[in-house]
Design a protein around this nucleic acid. Structure first.
Lengths: 205, 205
DNA sequence: GTCTATAAGGTGATAGAC
DNA sequence: GTCTATCACCTTATAGAC
């Protein structure tokens, strides 16, 4: 996104940290300025308004994982090959930045239309995704499960344990973060296996 | 929760609607009063503070599905029996009130400790949950998958399609809400099947 | 680019009249 | 129980000096 001054970068970093943690409404421009160690009016100088600054942070969050998924969806890889790659891509991104799912969903309820728009803008074509999943789910050895159910299963299994991290970490891992991360890494193998099983069994209706 | 005056009920209903949609920080006491059609100072008369009002709404949301899960976890039902019942319970709750997952997660990032505390308070004992899942996952025909992975899979598959409803609805169902609801109902059968397959196959490591 | 000063309005909460 | 009036403070945004 073109060249950035040092101050601009400091602002973006602080805005990310705070928006991720406390959401858009829960974060004031003053909070961001304090965190970045600069004068509050500079925020308006660089980004004109809180809305514009937030939009930048929101798009940057989506850019961290949507284009990778889009590229995979439109690749020529076979169903059996791209599922493990996609799962690994998503899980690695989430391990690096576990607040992203919550942050994105936080803003989903206030503005439900924006995210689908941005996703499509970033190159995800729903028709292509369905067709690709259908090749796996609808093939002769799969018994015709609705491709949309397949996609929901895949994405749910990859993302939910990060979206619910505070509860999962406390209830299932007793607050032990390393154990949690290890379990998330293990899911890179577990999820593709599950998907394969799902594909190789008959599904009624 | 004891007896409620008509005004008190109107406040709770409006607070629910708005907190669910815009979160705690995104909703002002004035918004709630306007929505309920009453004077703003009455909110303080009935609930003392915004924090206390929010706490009431938050607990009520958790009470709509946590005790049901807790009861199932501590029941004597076999693994094969209680999975379908639990899935049906969770999905029915979410169909009735699809904003709950987003609402709960919204507040998770601002206050990660509170939800695990309330969940335990409502009778979910993590040790019991693990032991129960272990009986399925760790039994002779299951190859010893970590029970925590089993629990994560189950909850992810049930809840994520609701948490991500705005995106799922738009991208996968073209905005057709009835089709979305039908698909969610279908998951009551799909998910237990998936769990059974998972249980009846060997899992490496 | 960075600052001070200030505008115009919203926030949660309470005191006190009825 | 319900209202008006008022508190002290925080909000985003901008004008203008340096």
């Amino acid at each position: 996104m073109v060249l950035q001054t040092e101050t601009e970068q400091k602002i973006i970093l602080s805005a990310e940290r705070l928006f991720y943690q406390k959401g858009k409404a829960g974060t004031s421009m003053q909070d961001i300025a304090d965190d970045a160690g600069i004068n509050r009016t500079l925020l308006n100088y660089y980004f004109r308004s809180k809305d514009k600054l937030f939009e930048r942070v929101f798009r940057k969050a989506l850019e961290s994982f949507v284009p990778g998924i889009a590229a995979l969806l439109h690749s020529e890889l076979s169903f059996e090959t791209y599922i493990p790659v996609m799962v690994e891509t998503i899980i690695d991104t989430m391990i690096e930045n576990p607040q992203i799912p919550i942050f994105v969903m936080q803003e989903l309820s206030s503005n439900p239309q924006r995210m689908p728009e941005i996703i499509k803008e970033m190159g995800v074509d729903p028709a292509v995704a369905m067709e690709k999943m259908g090749k796996g789910a609808g093939s002769d050895h799969a018994g015709g499960m609705d491709p949309r159910q397949v996609i929901m299963n895949l994405i749910s299994l990859c993302i939910f344990p990060f979206a619910a991290k505070p509860v999962v970490l406390d209830i299932l891992f007793n607050g032990n973060n390393e154990a949690y991360i290890e379990a998330m890494k293990a899911r890179k193998k577990i999820i593709p296996q599950l998907m394969n099983q799902l594909m190789s069994q008959k599904q009624p209706r």
